[in-house]
Amino acid sequence: MHSFTVNASLQLVPIVQDRHPYEWVDEAIEIIKSSGIAHEVGPFATTLEGSYEEVIAVFHAVNEHLLSRGCAEWIVSFQLQARSGGPITGDEKTGKFR
């Protein structure tokens, strides 16, 4: 894949009864934060912005973390937008609304 900036959204839905699902979501957000990738936490999903490799690495890191910590079950909704001719940024898409 190219090295241009891509946009993605990651929504985690833990299916658990051992603790409040938000606790698992908070751990996932910490993984995202510690990656250093540009991100914005929203009420339903977290948007990510970086190279394709960086974004996919964060996606894998979140899932590996949940598995290693014993999360019983989860759903991840993941959307990725890439452009073959150059970068695509969140600000390009939503900046006019801020």
Rank of each mutant, 00 (worst) to 15 (best):
C71D: 07
Q17R: 13
G86L: 14
D18T: 15
V55G: 05
I88T: 12
E27M: 15
V55T: 11
G36Q: 08
I56G: 04
Q81K: 14
F4N: 13
E54L: 01
P14T: 03
A72K: 10
P21I: 08
V6N: 07
C71I: 08
W74G: 06
E40P: 01
Y22V: 11
T89I: 09
W24N: 03
F97W: 15
D18N: 14
A8W: 01
S3I: 11
V55S: 05
S9T: 15
N63M: 03
S3K: 13
Q81G: 09
I31D: 01
H2R: 10
S77M: 12
Q81I: 09
P21L: 06
I29P: 01
V41E: 01
F59D: 04
T89D: 09
A61I: 11
G95A: 02
Q17C: 08
I15T: 12
E27R: 15
S35L: 05
H2S: 12
T46W: 00
P14R: 04
R69A: 14
E53Y: 02
I75V: 13
F78S: 02
Q79R: 15
E64R: 11
F59N: 10
S51L: 00
H2F: 11
A28H: 07
H65Q: 09
V55H: 06
E54W: 02
I32Y: 00
T46Y: 00
I37N: 02
V58C: 00
E30C: 00
F44C: 07
M1W: 06
T47K: 03
Q81F: 05
D26Y: 06
A38W: 04
V58P: 02
A82V: 15
A57Y: 01
P43S: 08
E30W: 00
R69L: 08
E54P: 07
Y22N: 14
H2A: 10
T94Y: 11
G95L: 06
A45Q: 12
E23S: 15
N63K: 12
I15S: 12
